[in-house]
Design a binder for these strands. Structure first.
Length: 432
RNA sequence: GGAGAGGUGGCCGAGCGGCUGAAGGCGACGGUUUGCUAAACCGUUAUACGGGGUCAAACCCGUAUCCCGGGUUCGAAUCCCGGCCUCUCCGCCA
């Protein structure tokens, strides 16, 4: 499918009206953008566009005349005259195009302003807890971490993972694999009950979906790139990319909205710049599987907010079915991604970390992704508008196995299988 | 990977280098007719950006877009080159 040329980033009109809002957004999100430079380039661009269009109009008109002229001498004279214009037009066009080429990369960096109700803060330490569910279990024995449990019970083999693929790699085996798959299947089944359309998606995509969903250019270094290919393709870090970009360059029928998609996919992340962080175990790894939910809805802030609550609830339901203690935090401004207007994280209790660890991330983007993806719909009034998009984890594994194994472990080193997973494991109740 | 064919509006499908933003049909929408529905008839039916206009619209003008990019030309949907995609055949393959 061809890439549409007129693809826009943030709404430049909004930026013109309220540059301070965007400057502030960049500051809050710690993104380097020179908003003043954007404005300067933008107004220069407008001038150049007008100059070009005026010249081109002249040329078009003159050319049209030539077609009507019968007398060959007159015709020759007219052609000579327009020929002189031709160069001017071309130059004007080039000035305009090159200004545009300068502006686009800047525009790609401009962030979506955080919503009013997002708490201010510099990083994840200032996220605000809004809910706790479940009781953190007191142990009357010394609990083991998932790495130890996984190795003892023959579920996880990190050593050999590292041997084959380097750091942050692993094998799951035996019941470890089955548990992993059970979790994914439970999550997917719960989403099917809610009417989401299941999909199997490409995990290797072109640059456009990456850029469109906001993972490029900021964050590019987090992706694995197949640069041997022409054009290059990239491994997605989440099925969000493929699901959200599914309707890229399309104009949807408003009656078909909202679209609710769910996909299970492998996810690949380079984790560049995290050396020394979370090195133990399955917390931060290069490859994992995730069930992801995506909503594409009408351009309506209130509707977006409702869906945000809904997809958060969907994920909470899964964690509750697994009976894992968790909390929900509102992510503060400094921890928001470029395109996110607001985000909730679900953090699930992980005894070895003696803390809640992030397992889910629910984001709403308003039209940020839709603009970059040229993802639109025709509204009931006949107007074409950009969609709103949202996404959330349903479950990501093996990270969630950390919580399951550690919370469900017994004094004798065995692990009880959560009831909700037993149907997927032939009724088995215990590992070890 | 090799050899061919092709990419036009919501869809189908015309299109000679100039008056083609694009015939015709279908669909959709509005209207007339009708006891209701259907049929028939009339009309409307791309998007983006810029300028003008308005309280806001309507509307008017310009530019661009017939897969994308570049070239030839006074002028390109039409000619040439590159790319992407689709289809057919051969090879390879889970």
């Amino acid at each position: 499918m061809p890439i549409s040329p007129g693809r826009v980033m943030i709404d430049i009109k909004l930026l013109r009206e309220n540059p301070e809002k965007y400057r502030r957004a960049a500051e809050l999100k710690k993104i380097q953008v020179d908003v003043a430079a954007v404005l300067d380039l933008d107004s220069a661009l407008l001038k150049l566009q007008q100059e070009f269009e005026k010249l081109r109009a002249e040329q078009n008109e003159a050319s049209k005349q030539i077609g009507r002229l019968k007398d060959p001498d007159q015709k020759q004279a007219a052609i000579a005259k327009v020929s002189a214009l031709k160069d001017q037009v071309k130059q004007a066009e080039q000035r305009w195009k090159s200004a545009e080429a300068q502006l686009r990369p800047l525009l790609l960096q401009v962030p979506q302003p955080p919503d009013e109700d997002v708490p201010l803060g510099k990083d994840d330490s200032e996220n605000v807890e809004i809910k706790r569910w479940g009781e953190v279990r007191p142990f009357d024995f010394e609990p083991k971490d998932h790495v130890t449990l996984g190795a003892k019970l023959g579920l996880i083999d990190i050593e050999r993972g590292v041997k084959l693929a380097g750091t942050r790699s692993y094998f799951l085996l035996g019941l470890g694999t089955l548990l992993h798959q059970a979790v994914l299947r439970l999550a997917q089944d719960m989403m099917l009950e809610r009417g989401f359309v299941p999909m199997t998606v490409p995990v290797l995509v072109r640059a456009e979906p990456m850029e469109g969903t906001g993972y490029f250019p900021i964050g590019r270094e987090q992706s694995y790139a197949m640069t041997n290919e022409d054009p290059p393709v990239y491994l997605v870090g989440t099925a969000e990319v493929s699901l959200t970009a599914y309707h890229m360059n399309e104009t949807l029928d408003v009656a078909s909205l909202p679209r609710r998609y769910v996909a299970t996919s492998s996810c690949f992340r380079r984790e560049a710049g995290t050396y020394g962080k979370d090195t133990a175990g399955l917390y931060r790894i290069h490859q994992f599987d995730k069930v992801e939910q995506v909503i594409i809805c009408r351009n309506d802030v209130e509707e977006s907010k409702r869906w945000h609550q809904a997809i958060l609830a969907n994920a909470e339901d899964v964690v509750q079915r697994l009976k894992l203690p968790y909390r929900v935090v509102v992510v503060c401004t400094g921890d928001l991604g470029q395109g996110q207007a607001a985000k909730y994280d679900i953090e699930t209790w992980m005894p070895s970390r003696k803390n809640y660890g992030e397992t889910h991330s629910a984001s709403r983007f308003y039209d940020f992704q839709a603009r970059r993806l040229n993802l639109r719909y025709r509204d009931t009034d006949g107007k074409v508008r950009y969609c709103h998009t949202l996404n959330n984890t349903v479950i990501a594994s093996p990270r969630i196995l950390i919580s399951i194994l550690e919370n469900y472990q017994n004094a004798d080193g065995s692990v009880t299988i959560p009831e909700a997973l037993r149907p997927y494991l032939g009724g088995r109740e215990k590992i070890g």
